Structure formats: structure tokens, C-alpha cells
Simulated assay, not measured.
Amino acid sequence: MTALRQQWPMPSAPRPIVIIGTGGIVADAHLPAYRKAGFEVAGLFDLDQDRARTLAAQWDVPHVFASIKEAARADAVFDVAAPPVAHNAILEALPEGAAVLLQKPMGLDLAEATAIRDTAQARGLTASVNFQLRYSAMMLAIADAIRQGRLGELLEVEVRINLVTPWHLFPHLKPNPRVEIVSHSIHYLDTIRALIGNPQGVFARSFGHPSSELVDTRTSILLDYGDRLRVPLSINHHHDFGRRHQEASFRVEGTDGAAQAKLGVLLDYPAGEPDELWLAPRGGPWEQVALSGAWFPDAFIGPMANLQRFAAGEDDVLATRVDDAWRTMALVEACYSAGNTPGTPIPQP
């Protein structure tokens, strides 16, 4: 089998990183990924100074900044892992022209995304958003298989999530008026955009669940790519009936071949299972592709590597730059708008 690209190239001269925000995602993904990549983390800042100091001690980070102003004076690339409601204010505090990676989502709605984009552009920031699933080994490999023509004309892209997500690990989501699409399915929407471009439109609806305090935790989406390419997403975070029929799959199928990925981290999150990728030509057989890394934490290396390489002139494209991320947020907004539209009435006798 011809080798498939699975990793983003590394910068030839990596710059130190300052991380703003020290929540669970930093401990579970950012810091492990950066250590594995050999990136230097020069310091941390969080309004909760005790939490920042504890995390710095655990990961041998040499400095905890006392304020955002002090952090902004560092000669570094900034990794903003704070809640999205704080992103715009943080961007205003960073030096003009800085290189910045923003944790997803890019705000909680399109208005916030627009404000973040405009602030980044006004301050001349080289800014991108940490939509890391598209940088995972399995998704980079699928993208490369598509580029090589191994799947032929694409006819199907389907995401199926049917499992139990421990929402209690994310208490900050409770007051949000939007949860599932903007906090979870946004990963799939962004990755689909990266693989096949922007849809023409969307049909979507999200649903709550009696066991959850969150406003919505289940979603059905159908992306409109015309009359040949079918792109459905079926998302259920409450399948609590044992492991046998739980599923976290991402399938891409064409006239000549198919790819099927297992998003292992979502099964028994956060412990997870190994990611898997399988490819088959038309008629089979299926062959498993050995993966060079997992979605968590390895895919978190890619967005930072791309940002640093782009800032240094080594990459021509900043894949998840804020104006491209805005388009993912626009798709999210369209999903919510579609969910507020009643279904077509059924003709009555």
C-alpha cells in the first residue's frame, strides 16, 4: 500500500510557547502533545494562579505569569486555551503581530466569531483556531487517500456517534444556550470542510435528553453537497446500554474505494480506545492502516506546527486561520438556524 501522509511537518526552528488558560484540555492534550513534539513551553497564565502553579510544577514549566500583561510581554507564540467568551479580550491584550492559536470553538455563535476574526485582523495577528481533528493521523491519511485518487469520486461521508459522553466533566457548559454542535460536532463539520469543501446548505436539529442538564446533547445533520454526495451526521451522546453497539465512526466512500476511521478517544472518554483506520478498494478486502498517532493528544501537535511554520514562512497555508475557522462557525450557525425551522408539513387529506 502506498504510504499515506499522517503528520504535519515540524518547524525547523520552533519558538517557545506561552499558554493562556490551564483547564483540563491543557493538562490532557496541549502539554502532553507539546512535550512529545519537543516544543518548549516557556510559561503559563491563568486567573486561577494556584491551578496554574500546580500544573506548571507537574509539567516542569519554568514560569507562571502574574497577569495577562506580563504574559503578553513574552517573546513567544501564544496558545489561548481559555473559554471562548474570553478570546476577544485576550487578543486585545496580546502584542500586535503576534502568532496566536485559539482553542475551539471560535466564540459561541457567529457574532462572537466575527468579532474575534475582526480583532485578529485589526491587530495584524497571525491567528488560527485549534480544530485539531483535521490534523489527526487518521484524517490526514484520509485526506491523502482522497488526493491520490484512491477513493475515486466521493459519494458518501458519514459520521456516526452513538456512545456515552461524561458531560459532568464539562460543568462550564451548563449555562450555554448551545452545546452539542458548537462544542462537539464542530470537530466533524470542520474536518468535513477540510476534506470536501463547503456545503451548499444544511438540514439539522439538536435535541436534549432527560438525563442531562445541558440544553442539547443529540444532533442530526444532513449537509447539502448536491445530488450525488451524501453527507449525514448522527450524534447521540446517551447510548448507555453497554459497549457492544456503541460507535464513533467516520466513513468516506467513493466510486473506487472507502475509508473507515474509529475515533477511539470518544469510546470510554477520557480513557478511550485506540484510533483505527481501514481502507478498501471497491470489492475489498479491507486493510488496516497503522497509525502514527492518536487524536488525543497527538493531533494537538499539528495546529501549533502549522502556525509556527506559517509564521516562519515555511508553510504557504495556515489551514485553520481565523477567516477559514469563521466559515466553520458559519456552518455551525446555519445548523442552529436550520434547527429552528419547522419541518415541511405533511399533506393532509
Rank of each mutant, 00 (worst) to 15 (best):
L223W: 03
A76W: 09
V215N: 02
D268H: 14
P105T: 12
R35G: 11
I161M: 15
G302I: 09
A52S: 02
P9G: 08
V129L: 14
N340D: 09
G343I: 08
M10H: 07
D79P: 05
T328Q: 07
P177T: 00
R282I: 08
L291C: 02
N162E: 15
F203I: 08
T320E: 12
L110S: 13
L110C: 06
A42F: 03
I301W: 01
Q348E: 15
A27W: 08
P210I: 12
D268C: 05
V85E: 15
G149E: 11
V157C: 06
H63F: 02
R35N: 07
W278G: 07
M10L: 15
D79W: 02
G149N: 14
N340Y: 13
I196G: 10
A37H: 04
S67A: 03
P175G: 01
A338I: 06
N198S: 11
W286V: 08
L189E: 04
I146P: 01
V265G: 06
P349M: 05
I196W: 00
S128L: 03
D46K: 00
P274F: 07
V289T: 09
R230N: 14
E314F: 00
H30S: 12
L222D: 02
R123Y: 12
W59P: 00
I142W: 03
L318E: 14
L267K: 05
N198G: 02
L163G: 01
E156P: 00
T126L: 15
A56F: 04
A305T: 09
E213R: 00
D50S: 06
G21W: 06
A258S: 13
A82L: 01
R51C: 00
P270F: 03
M138V: 13
Q308W: 04
D28I: 05
N88P: 07
R205C: 08
G197F: 10
I142N: 01
N130Y: 11
A334W: 01
N176Y: 02
L291Q: 02
K262Y: 02
D79V: 03
W286K: 13
V26G: 12
P270W: 00
F170E: 11
D224Y: 14
S12M: 12
P175N: 00
L133P: 09
W8G: 00
L307H: 07
R5W: 03
K104P: 04
P32A: 07
D50P: 00
G339N: 00
I17G: 01
M139Y: 06
A99M: 05
S206M: 13
V100R: 06
P345Q: 05
A37K: 09
H245W: 13
Q148T: 04
L263N: 00
N340I: 01
M329Q: 10
P345Y: 06
N198A: 09
Q49N: 09
L266P: 00
V265K: 03
N198R: 14
A299M: 11
A93P: 11
P199H: 03
L307D: 03
